[in-house]
């Protein structure tokens, strides 16, 4: 039971450890994957710190506490921001879109929203459901464009076998599920705490699936040796 609890409590850390190991062991070859690699590193550090703060709250200095509890919300907000920035950057850069400025403008709008929200409306020390909703909308629109372009694409590339497909599918799956979970995060915790706990478990499972898809995409991009011989 203790082990199960440990696995569950650290799930956000070990899930990101899967793509991290793939990066360190197989060294994905493509330069294009740099944003994804950066996201994995940044996400791992942020999630590790967030989980460590909760698990070892008694070691934390007093300024990390709010209302008697250790407050790691800023790390989750930062993770959400990093996810949009790096994964959005990756999906936009992987395809030659007809209107790239539309997607870049979307990212700029997101940045403006984040700055405005945390300057005038919300404290970065509370878990921002607005930020999560904005993350979902931004990444879903970018992924939607990716899927549309893949359908229109006339080139020889089989997008189903391309690493970017796994990443876009992972992001989309993660965002479609977490959008409603975080949109109703506070009302659910106030009015139906048992269902809120269920949604958090769903969120954890979705995050693990998302990390596995990232790992698969990174594994697919590893360097491959050339075969010799001439065949007719």
């Amino acid at each position: 039971m203790k082990l199960i609890n440990f696995i569950r409590d650290w799930s956000e850390v070990w899930a990101l450890l899967i793509p991290l190991i793939i990066i360190l062991v197989f060294k994905p070859a493509k330069k294009q994957l740099r944003p994804v690699i950066l996201y994995v590193f940044a996400g791992f550090i942020l999630n590790f710190l967030a989980t460590f703060m909760v698990e070892y709250y008694y070691l934390m200095p007093s300024w990390t506490y709010t209302d008697g509890y250790v407050n790691n919300n800023i790390l989750y907000n930062l993770h959400s921001f990093v996810r949009v920035l790096f994964l959005g950057w990756y999906i936009i850069s992987v395809r030659q879109y007809k209107f790239p400025f539309l997607l870049k403008t979307l990212l700029i709008f997101y940045l403006v929203f984040v700055i405005t929200n945390f300057t005038f409306y919300e404290s970065p020390f509370i878990l921002s459901t607005r930020l999560y909703a904005a993350e979902s909308i931004t990444l879903l629109v970018i992924c939607l464009f990716y899927f549309f372009r893949s359908m229109q694409d006339e080139s020889d590339i089989n997008w189903l076998k391309h690493p970017s497909f796994l990443i876009a599918a992972g992001i989309s799956l993660y965002e479609v599920i977490t959008f409603f979970i975080f949109l109703f995060f506070y009302p659910l915790h106030q009015k139906d705490i048992s269902f809120a706990a269920v949604t958090m478990r769903i969120y954890t499972i979705t995050f693990v699936v998302f990390c596995i898809l990232l790992a698969l995409a990174l594994y697919k991009s590893r360097k491959k040796s050339n075969l010799s011989g001439v065949t007719g």
């Binding site: 409603f180 979970i181 109703f184 009302p187 659910l188 009015k191 139906d192 269902f195 949604t199």
Partner: peptide, 8 residues
């Protein structure tokens, strides 16, 4: 709470 549950 039930309404929110259904909504989610």
């Amino acid at each position: 709470g039930t309404d929110i549950r259904y909504l989610v």
